[in-house]
Design a protein around this nucleic acid. Structure first.
Lengths: 185, 185
DNA sequence: CTGCAAAAAGAATCGCTGTTCTGCTTGTGA
DNA sequence: TCACAAGCAGAACAGCGATTCTTTTTGCAG
């Protein structure tokens, strides 16, 4: 039964979501039509529908890809064995922000206020990020500040909250900075 | 030349934007149709188009109304003659958040990444808010912490940035908390 | 009071967009 | 190498939604 090999199939899916993310970044989740993605990806309508059930499905996959990538980058810093202090952690997080992803990320927040599926993805991602920041801060408190693990855990909570918040705000600022590039009217 | 008296006209416009904001909060900026606003406001298509050039115009007016209201509330705290310390200021700001407005506010951020007019409104509002927070913090540094005005100005900047960021993040959290209420499918 | 232009209602229009359908093409397993 | 199902292209379709148009109603100036 000759279908595409899994690797190739995944490749196509990635090709599509990547094109979609570029479109979304330019025109927004709703204002991007399937035709836009068709043009951007070089594929055709039929091809896209062969890989994604419908547009909502594609939006969901794209959102997941963008947010997961961000969370993943965060995981690296958090897992380091010489944990950065909170300010340093925040600086690194901010340094890793990519404007295109920031824009889609912020659009995703807006979408999450009405779209249950996207809402789930966003909330999960934010929770996972918070947990990782919390771990990183705890590790710092233990290894560098020499607190007892129990107390470190507790003290880490408000610090993690602050780091997370400042990071999210910076994501917003970044998204608002890059000028709105129009496709030809 | 008998048109509506200015007061009455302003009333209608407000009636429309208020209905629009409720719709936007429920269904998002894009997914809200003129028909939805028609139903919510109890008016008709024609009436809406008599007051707003088009949907973009209406979205713009609604966004402006919501953000202006938030900025205004902030102004009150900032103008107080016993300035709150930064933590207190932040607490008050957060206490003043309304879920409906938070949702529309966050949607507005997403929209601002592609829509130049909304972008302008959002950036202006954020800048104005930052200036007010800065003033409030400066006043606190001078009156309570007894710093010289010049130094207070300078020291206030990073503090204001932090307060602003934490506030914006809280706005996001609030928008994500209230569950996505659906209109009947 | 009264007339009339603006405002409101609601039907009609028209373009756009998601989705489906119909064949051709191509990759894969034997 | 081959055969055939899955991929893919692109046209066709269907429905929705912004805007416009026509008709009726209404509020204000005189």
């Amino acid at each position: 039964m000759p279908r595409l090999t899994d690797a190739r199939k995944e490749l196509r899916r990635a090709q599509i979501t990547e094109a979609a993310v570029r479109c979304f970044s330019r025109n927004g989740l709703e204002r991007t039509s399937i035709a836009d993605i068709t043009a951007e990806s070089g594929l055709s309508t039929g091809s896209i529908y062969a890989h994604y059930r419908n547009k909502a499905d594609l939006v969901q996959a794209s959102a997941h890809a963008v947010l997961a990538k961000r969370a993943e980058a965060l995981g690296e810093y958090a897992g380091s064995d010489t944990p950065p202090d909170p300010d340093e952690l925040l600086d690194r997080l901010i340094a890793g922000i990519d404007p295109v992803e920031a824009r889609v990320g912020v659009q995703t927040w807006g979408e999450a206020t009405n779209n249950p599926v996207i809402h789930g993805i966003v909330v999960d991602t934010i929770d996972r990020m918070r947990a990782m920041v919390h771990d990183s801060v705890t590790a710092w408190l233990v290894k560098v500040e020499h607190l007892e693990p129990a107390e470190a855990q507790e003290r880490a909570t408000p610090i993690a909250h602050r780091v997370q918040s400042l990071y999210l705000a910076q994501l917003l600022y970044t998204a608002l900075q890059s000028p709105t590039e129009e496709t030809a009217p």
